[in-house]
Computed example of a mutant assay.
Amino acid sequence: MPDDTLAPAFDKLRRAAAGLPNISEGTSYGTPSLRAGKKFLARVKDADTVAVMCPLEEKEVLLAAAPEFYFETDHYRGWPAMLVRVHDIPIEELAHRLERAWQIQATPKMLKARGPAGRSGG
């Protein structure tokens, strides 16, 4: 990992994604990231922030309901990704967000292999 200041954020992201199938690690925009198969799932944006894929309709609700965890910048406005204060969000909530991201990014084959859990709602 090129920047050791990102390691704590990526470690929490990894822990939250534990148990999700077909997760691979890589980089995105030069920072550590997770993928569901070949599709982007989440990445470390900076030492305190991760970006997680999120349907736009859920994003609006989350921004209003939990601004202590979720926010966006102009760059992410209108984009199906949520910025998350990684050190503030409880691991269980982050795990739920990654589960939802996995569900929207997983291929039909991955969803079928996972069974009903792969198709559960938000």
Rank of each mutant, 00 (worst) to 15 (best):
1 M>H: 12
1 M>N: 10
2 P>A: 14
3 D>R: 15
4 D>L: 07
5 T>Y: 07
5 T>H: 12
5 T>K: 14
6 L>H: 01
7 A>L: 13
9 A>T: 08
10 F>E: 00
11 D>L: 13
13 L>G: 04
14 R>V: 03
15 R>E: 14
16 A>Y: 09
17 A>G: 15
17 A>N: 10
17 A>K: 15
17 A>L: 05
17 A>T: 11
17 A>D: 10
19 G>Q: 07
20 L>F: 09
21 P>M: 00
22 N>S: 13
23 I>S: 08
24 S>H: 07
24 S>I: 05
25 E>C: 01
25 E>D: 04
26 G>V: 06
32 P>T: 07
33 S>K: 11
34 L>K: 08
36 A>E: 00
36 A>S: 12
36 A>Y: 02
36 A>V: 01
37 G>L: 10
37 G>A: 10
38 K>H: 12
38 K>L: 06
40 F>Q: 10
40 F>E: 08
40 F>Y: 14
42 A>Y: 04
42 A>T: 11
42 A>V: 05
43 R>T: 15
43 R>M: 15
44 V>F: 00
45 K>H: 08
45 K>M: 15
47 A>I: 08
51 A>C: 09
54 C>S: 12
56 L>V: 10
57 E>P: 11
58 E>S: 10
59 K>P: 08
59 K>H: 13
59 K>L: 00
60 E>C: 05
60 E>D: 12
60 E>Y: 02
61 V>H: 11
61 V>Y: 03
62 L>K: 04
63 L>S: 06
64 A>H: 01
65 A>C: 09
65 A>F: 00
65 A>H: 02
66 A>I: 01
66 A>P: 04
66 A>V: 01
66 A>R: 04
67 P>E: 08
68 E>R: 05
68 E>C: 01
69 F>S: 02
70 Y>K: 07
71 F>G: 06
72 E>K: 01
72 E>M: 03
73 T>E: 11
73 T>G: 00
75 H>Q: 12
75 H>G: 06
75 H>K: 15
77 R>H: 06
78 G>H: 09
78 G>I: 11
78 G>N: 13
79 W>F: 13
79 W>R: 11
80 P>L: 06
82 M>L: 15
82 M>G: 04
83 L>I: 09
84 V>C: 03
86 V>G: 02
87 H>Q: 15
87 H>F: 06
87 H>E: 02
90 P>R: 05
90 P>D: 06
91 I>H: 09
92 E>I: 14
93 E>G: 11
95 A>Q: 12
95 A>L: 09
96 H>I: 07
96 H>L: 14
97 R>M: 13
99 E>W: 07
99 E>A: 14
100 R>M: 14
101 A>G: 03
102 W>C: 01
103 Q>E: 11
103 Q>I: 13
104 I>V: 15
105 Q>V: 05
105 Q>C: 10
107 T>M: 05
108 P>L: 02
108 P>R: 00
110 M>G: 02
110 M>Q: 14
111 L>M: 04
111 L>Q: 00
112 K>V: 09
113 A>D: 09
114 R>V: 00
114 R>H: 11
114 R>K: 12
114 R>N: 12
115 G>Q: 09
116 P>L: 02
116 P>D: 08
119 R>H: 12
120 S>Q: 12
